[in-house]
Protein backbone atom coordinates (compact mmCIF):
# COMPACT_ATOMS: atom_id res chain seq x y z
CA UNK A 1 0.00 0.00 0.00
CA UNK A 2 3.00 2.21 0.54
CA UNK A 3 3.57 2.29 -3.20
CA UNK A 4 0.14 3.92 -3.57
CA UNK A 5 1.14 6.69 -1.21
CA UNK A 6 4.33 7.17 -3.15
CA UNK A 7 2.47 7.34 -6.44
CA UNK A 8 -0.05 9.81 -5.05
CA UNK A 9 2.67 12.06 -3.80
CA UNK A 10 4.38 11.81 -7.15
CA UNK A 11 1.24 12.76 -9.03
CA UNK A 12 0.61 15.61 -6.62
CA UNK A 13 4.10 16.97 -7.15
CA UNK A 14 3.63 16.70 -10.88
CA UNK A 15 0.32 18.57 -10.66
CA UNK A 16 1.95 21.16 -8.43
CA UNK A 17 4.54 21.65 -11.13
CA UNK A 18 1.80 22.46 -13.61
CA UNK A 19 0.17 24.83 -11.14
CA UNK A 20 3.46 26.66 -10.68
CA UNK A 21 3.92 26.81 -14.44
CA UNK A 22 0.46 28.39 -14.69
CA UNK A 23 1.35 30.89 -11.95
CA UNK A 24 4.51 31.79 -13.79
CA UNK A 25 2.57 32.29 -17.01
CA UNK A 26 0.04 34.56 -15.29
CA UNK A 27 2.73 36.50 -13.50
CA UNK A 28 4.68 37.19 -16.67
CA UNK A 29 1.56 38.67 -18.24
CA UNK A 30 0.76 35.91 -20.70
CA UNK A 31 -2.92 36.10 -19.84
CA UNK A 32 -3.13 39.89 -20.01
CA UNK A 33 -3.46 39.99 -23.77
CA UNK A 34 -4.79 36.86 -25.40
CA UNK A 35 -5.42 38.44 -28.77
CA UNK A 36 -2.28 40.14 -30.11
CA UNK A 37 -0.03 37.04 -30.05
CA UNK A 38 -2.50 35.20 -32.27
CA UNK A 39 -1.99 37.86 -34.94
CA UNK A 40 1.71 38.34 -34.34
CA UNK A 41 2.51 34.76 -35.18
CA UNK A 42 1.06 35.25 -38.67
CA UNK A 43 3.25 38.25 -39.44
CA UNK A 44 6.50 37.41 -41.17
CA UNK A 45 9.80 39.10 -40.63
CA UNK A 46 10.95 39.02 -44.23
CA UNK A 47 11.95 42.27 -45.89
CA UNK A 48 9.68 43.15 -48.78
CA UNK A 49 11.08 44.88 -51.83
CA UNK A 50 11.12 48.61 -51.96
CA UNK A 51 8.22 50.05 -53.87
CA UNK A 52 10.27 51.91 -56.50
CA UNK A 53 12.41 48.84 -57.14
CA UNK A 54 9.36 46.77 -57.82
CA UNK A 55 8.13 49.09 -60.55
Amino acid sequence: MLIMLFLIMLSLILALGFLLAFFWAVRTGQFDDDYTPSVRILLDDDQPKRDNQKD
Binding site: I8, L12, A15, L19, F22, F23, V26, G29, F31, D32
Partner: peptide, 23 residues
Protein backbone atom coordinates in the same frame (compact mmCIF):
# COMPACT_ATOMS: atom_id res chain seq x y z
CA UNK B 1 -3.26 48.04 -12.66
CA UNK B 2 -3.80 44.55 -14.07
CA UNK B 3 -5.51 42.45 -11.45
CA UNK B 4 -4.35 38.91 -11.87
CA UNK B 5 -5.60 37.55 -8.57
CA UNK B 6 -8.62 35.92 -10.14
CA UNK B 7 -6.33 33.84 -12.35
CA UNK B 8 -4.37 32.68 -9.34
CA UNK B 9 -7.52 31.84 -7.41
CA UNK B 10 -8.91 30.02 -10.39
CA UNK B 11 -5.68 28.09 -10.84
CA UNK B 12 -5.63 26.99 -7.21
CA UNK B 13 -9.29 26.00 -7.30
CA UNK B 14 -8.81 23.96 -10.47
CA UNK B 15 -5.72 22.26 -9.07
CA UNK B 16 -7.44 21.35 -5.81
CA UNK B 17 -10.67 20.30 -7.52
CA UNK B 18 -8.87 17.83 -9.76
CA UNK B 19 -6.72 16.34 -7.04
CA UNK B 20 -9.39 16.07 -4.39
CA UNK B 21 -11.73 14.41 -6.85
CA UNK B 22 -9.11 11.82 -7.73
CA UNK B 23 -8.31 11.21 -4.09
Amino acid sequence: VVDRRLYFQLGVAGFVFGNVMLL
